[in-house]
Amino acid sequence: MAVKEEVIEILNTIIGEDINDQLDDDFFDSGLLDSMATVELLLDLESKFDIQAPVSEFNRDEWNTPNKVIAKVESLIG
């Protein structure tokens, strides 16, 4: 599976709804992702892709949409 699909799958599970049609929506503004869910996301990404995404690297402006998360993960892998 490509990185993109895997990230979307993780996000879908954490958020509890399909986010395929809102890949550029800010999920902090919409309240879909709170601090708890964010930590879950970081932990899931860490175990799935074996990347280090420490909490203080986590800049909300760079992680606020599904597409940005995908881009981040791709840059951290590569």
């Binding site: 601090s35 708890m36 964010t38 930590v39 879950e40 932990l43 909490v55 203080s56």
Partner: peptide
């Protein structure tokens, strides 16, 4: 960012 999330991160 520095307490809540780190705490949750560690506990999880």
């Amino acid at each position: 960012d520095y307490i809540f999330m780190r705490l949750v991160f560690m506990m999880m």
